[in-house]
Design a protein around this nucleic acid. Structure first.
Length: 130
DNA sequence: CAAATGACAGGTA
DNA sequence: GTACCTGCCATTT
């Protein structure tokens, strides 16, 4: 299982911080998040960070305590999707279904395992398109 | 050290 | 539009 180390700590911290900034009703991609944390080739690791967010965030909190400004409960992981808006398949489909449910609940239209509305502009640094 | 594994992405057929 | 295929890279086996 993944684990926080001195080497990867900054990466995970940055990923969770960026994901926290995505507004309700908007979505972005794993690749976009990777770019925003200046590790454009690590989109797969972004997926890993979200998959294990419960475990990893608790580890970060244990290490850094108060400086950690996010929590597993408050992390809007559902707002990160694959390129083209695809809902990434999991080994256990429960996660995918949960993601679709959460997105629809906040007004994001999802059809055929894919986000339809590409309302993703104006939420972070500059206008970013996918 | 080599091989396999992934909540990925981009290009090609 | 869909289906593969290849590149990618941290982790695990």
């Amino acid at each position: 299982m993944v684990k926080i180390t001195e080497d990867n700590k900054g990466f995970y911290d940055a990923v969770y911080s960026v994901v926290m900034l995505i507004p309700k009703g908007k979505v972005t991609t794993y690749g976009h998040v990777a770019e925003l944390v200046h590790r454009p080739a690590n989109s797969r690791q972004v997926g890993s960070a979200l998959k294990h967010s419960h475990l990893l965030i608790s580890q970060l909190a244990a290490m850094d305590g108060d400086s950690v400004s996010y929590s597993y409960q408050g992390l809007p992981w559902q707002r990160v999707v694959g390129s083209g808006g695809k809902i990434s398949p999991r080994s256990d489909s429960h996660g995918e279904l949960e993601q679709v449910t959460r997105l629809r609940q906040e007004g994001v239209e999802v059809s055929e395992a894919r986000v339809v509305s590409l309302d993703r502009y104006g939420w972070f640094p500059d206008e970013v398109s996918w």
